[in-house]
């Protein structure tokens, strides 16, 4: 029963939501809206558990003075500080917006900016012509890169931009579409496995 009931609930919910995709009637739209509200409610309760997990983890680090425990103080202070400002002054308050725009956003932007360097180092490794396939990859990358900058057009009399266009629009799109088709069918097969109770690992133990 501990297994059968969740499988039955999963099947019924998944079946109704699958039907909802094909039935635009208002009654099914309302069901979809209600299910979205339920997801949000479950998400809120899960968030409480998540925050408890975060606090416990960092509290343990501070308590036992584990390596880099100072960062845990910063984490907990940030969590409490932002929460208090949000709760007391509301999320639209200037203080909350200032904290978000001038602390969190620049930190995130800095991390994102590092991506350029990661791309450079990964490209350096990926484009080493050790095998035939890697050499083809290198050649394709060089053509596409040169095709996208003015000097590429200048040195090749406009050939590189055209070749880059062909590489990006045909072999690249063909490979992507093959992946998309596989992903689409794979997702449908996985959804069926979950609906029919064949895939149950996400439920944990009995």
């Amino acid at each position: 029963m501990k297994r059968e009931l969740p499988i039955a609930i999963t099947f019924i919910c998944a079946f109704i939501l699958t039907l909802q995709y094909f039935i635009p009637h208002r009654s099914f739209e309302i069901m979809y809206e209600i299910s979205n509200i339920w997801i949000q409610i479950i998400g809120v309760f899960a968030m409480i558990l998540g925050i408890i997990s975060l606090i416990m983890l960092h509290w343990e680090k501070i308590k036992h003075k584990k390596e880099n425990w100072g960062f845990s103080i910063v984490t907990l202070a940030s969590l409490v500080g932002m929460s208090l400002v949000g709760l007391i002054a509301s999320e639209n308050s200037p203080v909350f917006e200032w904290l978000y725009n001038f602390i969190l956003a620049p930190i995130s932007a800095t991390m994102f900016a590092l991506l350029a360097f990661f791309i450079a180092s990964a490209a350096y490794r990926a484009f080493r012509a050790r095998t035939v396939v890697a050499t083809i990859l290198l050649l394709a990358a060089v053509i596409v890169m040169l095709g996208r900058v003015p000097i590429g057009s200048l040195i090749s009399f406009g050939i590189f931009p055209k070749m880059a266009e062909i590489l990006v629009n045909y072999p690249n799109v063909a490979a992507k579409r093959a992946i998309f088709m596989g992903v689409g069918l794979g997702a449908a097969a996985t959804a069926l496995k979950v609906m029919l109770g064949i895939e149950r690992s996400y439920m944990g133990s009995d």
Partner: peptide
């Protein structure tokens, strides 16, 4: 390490069940 709290809950349950098995 989990990005979404609900993912954490399911992951905890999955790992717990595996250790039990």
């Amino acid at each position: 390490p989990c990005y979404a709290p609900e993912t954490m809950i399911v992951a905890q349950e999955v790992v717990r069940a595996s250790y039990l098995d």
